[in-house]
Design a protein around this nucleic acid. Structure first.
Lengths: 213, 213
DNA sequence: GTCTATAACGAGATAGAC
DNA sequence: GTCTATCTCGTTATAGAC
């Protein structure tokens, strides 16, 4: 009975566990940590998630779905540039909250994860890249974006750069790292301003902050 | 006495531990793992590294120095393009050996590391980027490379993209990921062919595989 | 659904013989 | 320098009362 309360507890457990994984990694958080944060006993946690592997699998599944939902929300923006800006914003927000992308963190832990978690992590990245590739392809065909090569390759590139920027920002203790990378990424793909004549050096300037005409 | 044998044992311990960290992370390897791999008892390991924190600090220090040495070796190549190619090759080699960059891995674990390790990891990234920035600046001033913006920003960008490519390659189970990213990176910085006139669309093409011309 | 209590194990670390 | 033996603690997990 009382499926409502049950649901809530499960969600609260997942919230805390997700945060812990994003900050400490899968192997450096325990039921005791979740227990302390929630004011609930370890044994009670096992009632909701029998094993840590079960908890981990639920964690990945929820994160993946919620990320996909965020991507779907971004598609409501009509302009490709806006979509990319918001996509990058997802990563900025992760860093602002002093976390790592949960699946990026789990990618580091991959060798130690149970198989269902590994599959979920792989799926997160392939779906993430597939979505990006669609946005890129649509944006280019509408003349809103400018890049050469396969959208899938650029998508892989964007995901790598953003995940890496989160990682290096943590490692170097320099949060501005991500902003520098994000600016370069967006500028290198944004449409060149159409009014601008082709000056000899107009070639490539991956640096300027976006918007601007 | 017998400092020779001592040295060797220390090195073998560090070799095994480094591998374990690159594959499993700092929190998912133990003295028991090293012990088993080396055929030496746990207590003997403690003779060489009193605590895991000591072992970890030595690990970071050695990795950082050895990476710097690899960078110094790369500088023997006179051409900037060649230097960058070899730099990217360092990352390719890590992936080929089915590992993660050790400091990239430790960047994920950063919240759980003892302070000396954290400092070593941060230093690894700043030195790494500083070296790259120098290579980029020199290459551009000699007309061998082509990019806009501060070399330091591009350096941060390259490191992020490569670390991220290693990470995502692991997470997605798709090793080709890194190759795609590496090609895009090198192409976006390589010198534009001088013979080529400035065509209306020559603007920006971060995409095409280098050489050609 | 939550609790207390406890089992079973592996981790990092130490003492002291050889 | 390496060993055996042992300690202490934290971890995942279970049993069974409330």
């Amino acid at each position: 009975m009382s499926p409502r309360l049950d649901r809530d507890t499960v969600d609260r457990i997942l919230d805390v566990a997700e945060h812990l994984v994003q900050v400490r990694g899968y192997n450096a958080f325990s039921y005791a940590d979740v227990s302390a944060a929630l004011g609930i006993r370890k044994a009670s946690l096992h009632h909701h998630f029998a094993t840590k592997a079960d908890l981990g699998a639920a964690l990945v599944e929820r994160y993946r779905r919620s990320f996909l939902a965020a991507l779907a929300a971004i598609e409501e923006a009509p302009a490709a540039g806006e979509r990319l800006g918001r996509y990058v914003g997802l990563y900025r927000s992760v860093l602002r909250r002093q976390r790592m992308c949960m699946c990026g963190m789990l990618a580091a832990d991959i060798a130690t994860l149970p198989a269902p978690m590994r599959r979920g992590v792989a799926r997160f990245f392939t779906e993430n890249e597939a979505w990006l590739a669609r946005v890129l392809a649509a944006g280019r065909s509408r003349g809103e974006l400018h890049f050469a090569g396969a959208p899938a390759a650029i998508a892989a590139f964007l995901v790598s750069a953003l995940e890496g920027a989160l990682l290096v920002s943590r490692g170097s203790g320099e949060p501005a790292h991500l902003d520098a990378v994000a600016s370069l990424l967006l500028a290198s793909i944004a449409r060149r301003p159409p009014g601008r004549a082709v000056s000899p050096r107009s070639g490539r300037r991956p640096l300027r902050p976006r918007h601007r005409r």
